[in-house]
Lab assay of single mutants.
Amino acid sequence: EDYYQILGVPRNASQKEIKKAYYQLAKKYHPDTNKDDPKAKEKFSQLAEAYEVLSDEVKRKQYDA
Rank of each mutant, 00 (worst) to 15 (best):
Glu1Met: 14
Glu1Tyr: 14
Glu1Ala: 15
Glu1Pro: 15
Asp2Leu: 05
Asp2Trp: 04
Tyr3Pro: 04
Tyr3Phe: 11
Tyr3Asp: 00
Tyr4Glu: 00
Tyr4Asn: 00
Tyr4Arg: 01
Gln5Cys: 07
Gln5Arg: 07
Ile6Asn: 03
Ile6Asp: 02
Ile6His: 04
Leu7Lys: 00
Gly8Arg: 09
Val9Pro: 00
Val9Glu: 00
Val9Leu: 09
Val9Arg: 01
Pro10Leu: 11
Pro10Asp: 12
Pro10Arg: 10
Arg11Cys: 06
Arg11Glu: 04
Asn12Thr: 13
Asn12Glu: 12
Asn12Phe: 10
Asn12Gly: 07
Asn12Asp: 11
Ala13His: 01
Ala13Leu: 01
Ala13Cys: 07
Ala13Gly: 04
Ser14Ala: 12
Gln15Ile: 13
Gln15Phe: 14
Gln15Lys: 11
Gln15Ser: 11
Gln15Thr: 14
Lys16Pro: 09
Lys16Cys: 10
Glu17Lys: 07
Glu17Arg: 15
Glu17Ala: 11
Glu17Ser: 09
Ile18Leu: 08
Ile18Met: 03
Ile18Gln: 00
Lys19Ala: 14
Lys19Met: 14
Lys19Tyr: 09
Lys20Phe: 10
Lys20His: 14
Ala21Ser: 08
Ala21Leu: 03
Ala21Lys: 06
Ala21Thr: 05
Ala21Glu: 03
Tyr22Gln: 01
Tyr23His: 13
Tyr23Ser: 13
Gln24Trp: 15
Gln24Phe: 13
Gln24Met: 13
Gln24Val: 09
Gln24Pro: 04
Leu25Trp: 05
Leu25Cys: 05
Ala26Val: 13
Ala26Glu: 07
Ala26Trp: 13
Lys27Ala: 13
Lys27Val: 12
Lys28Ser: 08
Lys28Ile: 11
Lys28Glu: 10
Tyr29Ala: 04
His30Gly: 07
His30Arg: 06
Pro31Glu: 12
Pro31Ser: 14
Pro31Thr: 10
Asp32His: 10
Asp32Ala: 09
Asp32Met: 08
Asp32Ser: 11
Asp32Asn: 13
Asp32Phe: 04
Asn34Asp: 05
Lys35Ser: 13
Asp36Glu: 12
Asp36Lys: 05
Asp36Val: 04
Asp37Arg: 03
Pro38Tyr: 08
Pro38Asp: 12
Pro38Lys: 07
Lys39Asp: 10
Lys39His: 15
Lys39Tyr: 12
Lys39Ile: 14
Lys39Gly: 11
Lys39Ala: 15
Ala40Glu: 06
Ala40Asn: 09
Ala40Lys: 06
Ala40Val: 14
Lys41Cys: 09
Lys41Phe: 15
Lys41Leu: 13
Glu42Arg: 05
Glu42Ala: 07
Glu42Asp: 10
Lys43Val: 10
Lys43Thr: 08
Phe44Tyr: 14
Phe44Pro: 01
Phe44Asp: 02
Ser45Glu: 14
Ser45Lys: 14
Gln46Leu: 12
Gln46Phe: 09
Gln46Glu: 08
Gln46Trp: 08
Leu47Tyr: 05
Leu47Pro: 00
Ala48Ser: 13
Glu49Arg: 12
Ala50Ser: 04
Tyr51Gln: 02
Tyr51Phe: 11
Glu52Lys: 09
Glu52Val: 06
Glu52His: 07
Glu52Pro: 02
Glu52Trp: 05
Glu52Ser: 15
Glu52Ile: 07
Val53Tyr: 04
Val53Arg: 02
Val53Glu: 03
Leu54Ala: 01
Leu54Val: 03
Leu54Met: 03
Ser55Asn: 06
Ser55Pro: 00
Asp56Leu: 02
Asp56Met: 02
Asp56Trp: 01
Asp56Ile: 02
Glu57Asn: 06
Glu57Pro: 15
Glu57Cys: 07
Glu57Gly: 06
Lys59Glu: 04
Lys59Arg: 12
Lys59Pro: 02
Arg60Ala: 01
Arg60Pro: 01
Lys61Arg: 10
Lys61Asp: 06
Lys61Asn: 13
Lys61Leu: 10
Gln62Pro: 02
Gln62Thr: 08
Tyr63Thr: 02
Tyr63Ile: 02
Asp64Gln: 03
Asp64Cys: 03
Asp64Arg: 01
Ala65Gln: 11
Ala65Lys: 15
